[in-house]
Structures are given as C-alpha cells and as structure tokens.
Write a protein that binds this DNA or RNA. Structure first.
Lengths: 343, 343
DNA sequence: ATGAAAGCGCTAACAG
DNA sequence: CTGTTAGCGCTTTCAT
C-alpha cells in the first residue's frame, strides 16, 4: 500500500468505479455487495458482474469507519509454542465460522508489558470483542479493556476477578484435585517438575493448589525441578532423570504439563522403572499426544477447545441483543483422568 | 461496538476530546501521538497527559483510511492443528517485532474455496503485505493477489510458479533425497504412511519425489497406509501395526510427518522390532519433539521458522524502498538427518 | 512549531 | 426499489 503522494501510487478500485461500470448508484452497489436491503434481481446482477469484471475488493477500512462496525474479534494469548493456545483458537474459529466475525490473534509471550501493548493495538482497531487469556493484566490494560465498550472475555482461568466475562477452569482446584487423587492412591514422596515461568500464573496456581493439599495432609514436597527453553519432551526426560537420581525415594512426579510428563514417562519406561508402582506420574492439559504414548499419562483436561467455543459464544451473544445472553462467568470442571500412570 | 443509532451508543473518545482537554489543535495532538513532525516539548507533554488522563485509544480505522496505510500483514495458513504453522508464525512475529507491522492470521483448513474467501477478506483490509502458505490457489485467488498492489509471499513450497515472491523448500526434492538416502543404506521393501489429504500438496509432492526415485531404481512401493483424523501419534502407532502385520517383509517406513513417525517408532520399540536394522524409519519436518524420543527419528527439517523469517523480511524490504531488496525467490535446502532410525 | 481545510471510501438516514 | 446527502475520525497538505 503506497501512500497517496507516492510517484507510483495507483488509486484503488472504489465503489464509484463499480457504480460507473454498472450504471447503478454507489449506494445501491453498496447494498448489493453487502446483501443488505431490497435490490431488484436485475440490478443485483449488473452490479455483481461489474464488480467481478473489475476485480473489485471492498475497502473494509472505509466501511468500518462509516458504519462503526468492525467484524473482528481480538484474541490475545501468551504463546504459540505449544499446542494449548492453537487449540483454543480452533474452538473460537469453529464458533465464529459462519458468522460475520473473524478472529485476530495477538501474542504476548507471557510478558505483561507486551500484553498491554497488544491490547492497546487491538483496541485501536475497534474490534467487536476481545478474548484474552488469563486474569492477570497491568492496571492500564485492565482499564483499557473495561472502558473499551466491547465485550471482553478472559479465558483459561477463573481464579480471580474478571473485568467483564470469563470462561475457564480453576487451576487452584485442578492442582488440589490432582493432589487429592494422588494421596488417595497412597503416594507420599512427591516431586514437582515444571517450567521456570513466574508469569505463567495458571501453572503457578496449580502448584499452589497442589501443595496446599499436601500441607493439609501434613506432607510437603519432597523435591522440585524447573527448566526453561528447549524441547519439552527432551527436557521432561532430563529433568526426570535428574530429580530421580537426586531424590531416590520419590514415589510420584507431578508435571506442570503433559509434554514434559510424556518425556518423563518415556524416560522411566526406558530406565525400567515400574510406572505406576515404583513411581506414579501425572501431567496437565489432556493433550491428544497422550493417546499415542506407551502408557496413557494421568492428566486433567484443560478443555481448551471448549473454552474457546464458550468464549466466542459469549462474544456473539453480547453482540446480538435479541439472543438471550449466556452466563458471563463460566467455570468448567475438568476431571482427573488417571490413565495408566497412577495406581 | 454499537451502531451509532443504538439507544445506548456511547460516542468514542476522539482526537477532538484530547484536543479540547489539552488546549492544543487536533492536528498537533495527532502529531504528538504519532511521534511525527516537530512539536515543542511543552505541548508534547500537555497532549500526552491529556491522552493518558482520558484513556484515549486512537482509532486506527480512521487513521488507516486517511493515510492509506495499514500496518498489518496477512498470514494465511491451512491449519493450526499441528506445530508446523505456529512455528512459521513465530518466525514471522520475530522479524515483525519492533517494526510497525503486525501479523494477522487466517486459517483455510486446506480448502481452496475457504482460502479464496480468507484472501478476499484479508485484502479487503488493505494490508501492507500477504504471506500465504503454498503455491496452489484458485484462479480467482491468484488474480486477487496479483492485483492487490501489495507484496505477496508464498511460503513453504517452491515447486511451482509464484505470483510475486516465494520462500520455501522443494518438497519434491525432499522426497527424492530421503528416498536416495534410504536406498543408499540398503533398504528395499518400502512402505509409505501418510494422511488422507489430497489437498496437502506438499505432502503429495514429497511422496511423488520419493516414489520417482524408487522407480528410477527399478523399485516400487511395497505398501501404503493413510489415515485421517485423531491423534497423530496414536494413528502412527495404529497404522504402523496395521501395515507391518499386512506386509511382513517391509524393511522401511516413510511417514508424511514426524508425529505419525514418532507413533510408529514407539510402536516398533514396544513390539521389540529392531530399529533401524529390521525396520528403518523416517519422517518429515524436524519437529522439536523428536529430541525427546527414545531414538531420534530420521527426518528432514522443513525450516519453518526460517521460512517465516525470510518471508517477513521480504515484505519489510519491499515496503521500505530505501532498503536493497533481498531475492524474491528463496529456496532453502534442508538436509536429511539420519538420527537413529536408519542404519 | 502550529493550525485550518479538505477529503480518504464507505454507509446511515432519509427522500423519493 | 433506488438515489442523495452528510459525515465517520483521522491525516495530508498547505498556510501561517
């Protein structure tokens, strides 16, 4: 897109061009192209032909400015580097498919300042709604979203205060339930393995819920291991080896996600460790990958696609005032799936 | 975003509001907010304070219309359901980070008509550039892109004619090289395992290149197996079991991607099959996952992040006329990585 | 260094 | 069913 003062600026095709080519007024051309209002079949055809002939592509920028309507939904997520968020996206896409709305993604890399920036950027396009991962934001970001005048759905997490609407699971509870299941099954010397990400609030909350239950049972974590960077599967393998060599009496490993859990599982199987009798293990997320492992890793489904779908539905409903509005605070309750790695 | 005629329409904050609050003309406010043109430090501050005070968020729609500039790059990819495309995205993001440009994603689900639709939708926002996966498009889509007047980079594949620019690998050659390596290592009874996706042109091209080399060597495929849907890892496992039970004399399995290859590898290891001596195996993509498997699967890196980076650089360069333009046709040559699953 | 005027391409609202 | 008018919020251009 060249600036209009550039020497080689080629003016774009406008409604006016279609109007002239078809001998129909701009306004009627506009109506035809948007399928709005009554237009006779004859004019309709003339316009459509002219538009196709010319290769006219409407200018949504101008349309949006004039109509004060932007059919975009901003989706703001921390990362693309694991399957979690793409799956949320798919849930959103599926619901938005067939409506006028289109998702637009922004990535924050788990950085609050970057998130604030992305939110600002998004809002400056005046989208019809916003879906944001997590409940933790800078004050400025919260203020912007609260004042944006569009529906805002915070997703993935419900442990905290939502600005407008939220859909997710309680990670504290997820951690608590996993711990409860583990204790119930008799495991006592428990190690924690996770990513070194203080800003991954959801992983933090799971671990908090998890350790709280241990404490209530008079236990404490036997050991911990954190990593950053690299292939999650490989890291899970390495970390597991490290922690088991260091703490020989561990009988359970709780991983912050399934991918590193899978690495740990592969390591144990190769090392001849009896899973789940010598060592039990559990991850989190319920990724598809789990189905293909030699043993199904115990996990808890984080319901990513469902969260995406529900969030999109909330946006849709709050735009369509005739629809009866769905609840604006949705907690999904995942269940512990023991798989083959707990006894 | 409510329509302006709605009963509960709240007018948005405009430059005018900031102008009035700061006692500075709209024009100067605009200059401050865009860091353009000379503005005295004093006015600058007044404006910035007023804007922050009010919580003003500029309207990019209006800005874009007036300036004929949209700092968006459309990225059109077939799928989010495996790690391949998110990784391309990360390459793109990394390069665009720090520039004015922002990527916007559209997903086509490997459907040509859907792709045409997404391209049309994208172009109607008048983005500064387009990055599209693949070289195969509907005629209408090609025409739109050719006439869009913005840089268009087709990525992932170079086996075909590019509209404007392209960055990718030759999948035909990738298939050929893999076949060559396999034959060189003495494998002869070769089975093919892949996804049932006639519209995944790149997988098709790899298989075509692969079988061409076999034919040139007087060989033909011993067996084939295709799947659709489900967990790739689990499917890889199932397909491998199926093909091996059916064709007991196979000595090599070529998978259309690493994920199903990994499933196959896990199956073989569990089944006590000697890899690579009884059976050799190879996949495609070079996903990180491979590092964490019991044996590293032979593969060929599809250079996703690099492709994303190069594509973004081409867009950037063609927008900045002072920059010397990089080549507009870039073929990256991946190398066969034998890992531990070929002898 | 700052301001005023004009208009980007389209659609809402109203008139016929 | 079709057309006319006005203007969305901003930036360009030109004047001061």
């Amino acid at each position: 897109m060249t600036s209009r003062s550039d020497p080689d600026y080629r003016p774009q095709l406008t409604l006016r061009d279609v109007s002239e080519a078809s001998g129909v007024s701009e306004m009627t051309v506009s109506r035809v192209l948007r399928n709005r209002g009554e237009v006779s079949e004859k004019t309709r055809e003339k316009v459509l032909n002219a538009a196709k002939e010319l290769g006219y592509v409407p200018n949504k920028i101008a349309g949006a400015l004039a109509s004060n309507r932007v059919n975009l939904v901003g989706v703001i997520i921390p990362s693309l580097s694991n399957m979690v968020f793409p799956e949320v996206m798919m849930g959103i896409s599926k619901v938005l498919e067939g409506t006028q709305l289109q998702p637009v993604v922004g990535v924050t890399y788990y950085e609050p300042d970057k998130e604030e920036e992305v939110i600002f950027e998004m809002l400056s396009w005046r989208p019809s709604g916003l879906i944001v991962a997590g409940l933790e934001h800078t004050d400025a970001a919260r203020k912007m979203m609260a004042n944006a005048g569009v529906p805002v759905v915070e997703i993935m997490d419900v442990d905290g205060d939502a600005i407008d609407a939220c859909v997710g699971i309680s990670h504290v509870r997820a951690g608590r339930e996993t711990a409860t299941e583990i204790l119930k099954r008799g495991y006592r010397k428990i190690g924690l393995l996770g990513t070194k990400m203080p800003l991954d609030h959801r992983a933090r909350k799971r671990f908090e819920g998890f350790t709280a239950v241990l404490q209530e049972a008079g236990l404490s974590l036997a050991d911990e291991e954190y990593y950053s960077g690299g292939s999650a599967l490989a890291k899970g393998r390495e970390m597991t080896q490290a922690i088991l060599e260091r703490s020989k009496d561990l009988d359970f490993l709780y991983y912050s996600n399934d991918m590193i859990g899978a690495g740990g599982l592969l390591y144990c199987l190769e090392a001849g460790i009896d899973v789940p009798d010598d060592i039990g293990m559990a991850g989190f997320n319920g990724v598809e990958l789990i189905d293909g492992l030699p043993k199904r890793l115990a996990t808890m489904d984080s319901c990513r696609a469902e969260i995406g779908r529900k969030a999109a539905e909330i946006i849709l409903a709050s735009l369509d005032k005739s629809a009866n509005s769905p609840p604006r605070h949705v907690e999904i309750s995942p269940v512990f799936a023991p798989g083959d790695t707990v006894r």
